[in-house]
Design a protein around this nucleic acid. Structure first.
Length: 425
RNA sequence: GUGGGCGUAGCUCAGUUGGUUAGAGCGCCAGGUUGUGGUCCUGGAGGUCGGGGGUUCGAGACCCCUCGUUCACCCCA
């Protein structure tokens, strides 16, 4: 028999970790739905051209697309992120604005995997379309901040910058290129290569020689239009009003070409690795239009689920939830009664598990212990003859004999009433 | 995509300059306790030493290739 394993950069999320993921998503949904964001589920693949709007020169598009031709000859791609899909959905359906949505799900980028960087990786995020107001920028950032806090993270830094509008940015890039070119000799060969492709990215370099050159580089601030500058100041003021600490970093540029004005990133100080950016986002005021929609401003963020959980691990917060059932049924007759009793308990709204394969009582009790059940229901020949069973409190080891028909009442008294499962609320 | 580290039981890892039947702890199963878990004791199952090729009388150890993973670069969540 051949043996298989997951493809590079993919993995199985096993229990109890998968439960942790669900909990992560539930907390995120609760956080953003409280601010009026509705859930959107775009397709996982679509016309590759949609994603090309992210920027032809970006690595995401140029080398990391999971694209292929389908059987109908359509050139499609697994989504490398969801912002472009959301904007395409907006352009396609033209909902009324402001349109505020949130999402969760896997994205795909063909790159070499390492810890915190996978080919299939999950993100949660929000996008808000149709509003220029700087207060929306603040709302968006504050929701991410609030979410991190709800997870229990304390080592998260908000780094923020403004890239100005398209014209501002172009002028700045020219000035930056000029400066870097005149200082080429002091740059590392890697940085010189980057300079040819995208001068902004040179600012990201962490190499010492480059950092010295960067320190003298022009910053975008002086290139911002009055409008963009005012917008940015109001965002910063709003953050102060909400008491959200931030670090301005005039060299913060982001990898996707569509960003305008406010751009931000969340960095975990608990993560040692290079993959310490656990979330990021910004304004993308031109994107909807390039996807065939009306000229519509937009802003949003995406948080890396995997990386955020790594940060949680590093900080020792938001661990995997303990799973347990209410009741574990031990049947030492032949297992047939466990079938009936377990079923009845489940229908009554409680959770119940049991042992199979007619194992010894000791073995079944061991399973009961492992299941984390509050109570064990023990069915033996002697008690069953008079339609009784033993119910054992696993923590205190106290047990009593009760009528099988009274089991659900007993659970209601001790675990609280539950809605029967067959009735959908 | 480039460069370095690492792949031994389900998990975490030992394994001496290549030398008999490859080990430990945890976990799992069974028994001690023929009606009872969490502690303890005893026993057991489980490994093509990532895969393929080579060197050698002999390879888990050495060489080559390959796959996976990890770190850095690159990039990004």
């Amino acid at each position: 028999m051949p043996s298989f394993q997951t493809s590079p950069g993919t993995r199985d999320i096993m229990p109890p970790d998968a439960a942790r993921w669900r909990s992560f998503n539930a907390i995120f949904a609760d956080t953003v739905e409280a601010a009026g964001y509705g859930c959107i589920i775009p397709p996982i693949f679509e016309d590759a051209a949609v994603f090309h709007r992210i920027g032809e020169a970006t690595d995401v598009v140029a080398k990391e697309m999971y694209d292929f031709d389908d059987k109908g000859g359509r050139h499609v791609s697994l989504r490398p992120e969801q912002t472009a899909s959301v904007c395409r959905a907006f352009a396609q359906h033209r909902p009324t604005t402001p349109w505020k949505v949130w999402y969760t799900g896997p994205n795909f980028r063909y790159e070499k995997a390492q810890a915190g960087r996978y080919r299939q990786f999950d993100q949660v995020g929000i996008e808000a379309l149709g509003v220029n107001d700087s207060d929306l920028d603040v709302e968006v950032i504050s929701l991410a901040w609030k979410f991190y806090q709800r997870l229990g993270l304390s080592g998260v830094q908000l780094v923020i910058n403004s890239l100005g509008d398209e014209g501002d940015r172009a002028k700045y890039v020219d000035a930056l290129r000029q400066y870097l070119q005149s200082n080429q000799d002091a740059l590392t060969p890697e940085a010189r290569q980057t300079l040819d492709r995208n001068p902004l990215r040179v600012l990201d370099s962490k190499r010492h020689a480059d950092i010295e050159v960067i320190a003298g580089a022009p910053t975008i601030k002086s290139f911002l239009s009055i409008e963009a500058n005012n917008h940015f100041e109001k965002v910063l003021n709003g953050l102060r009003m909400l008491e959200i600490p931030f670090h301005q970093n005039e060299y913060l540029v982001r990898g996707l070409d569509y960003y305008r004005r406010t751009t931000f990133e969340f960095v975990s100080t608990a993560l040692e690795s290079a993959q310490n950016a656990i979330g990021g986002g910004g304004r993308y005021d031109g994107l909807v239009q390039t996807l065939g929609g009306p000229d519509t401003p937009g802003i949003g963020f995406a948080l890396g689920l995997d990386r955020t959980l790594l940060a949680c691990d590093a900080e020792g917060v938001f661990g995997a939830p303990k799973s347990s059932v209410d009741v574990f049924v031990v049947d030492v007759i032949d297992g047939r009664q466990a079938l009936v009793v377990t079923n009845r308990i489940q229908d009554a709204g409680y959770s119940a598990d049991r042992a199979f394969d007619a194992r010894s009582m000791k073995a079944q009790m061991k399973s009961a212990d492992r299941s984390g059940a509050r109570f064990a229901v023990i069915i033996t020949s002697e008690e069953f003859e008079s339609n009784n069973c033993i119910i054992r409190d696993m923590a205190s080891a106290q047990q009593q004999t009760i009528a099988i028909k009274d089991l659900v009442d007993f659970l209601a008294r001790n675990l609280g009433a539950k809605i029967p499962r067959r009735l959908t609320p």
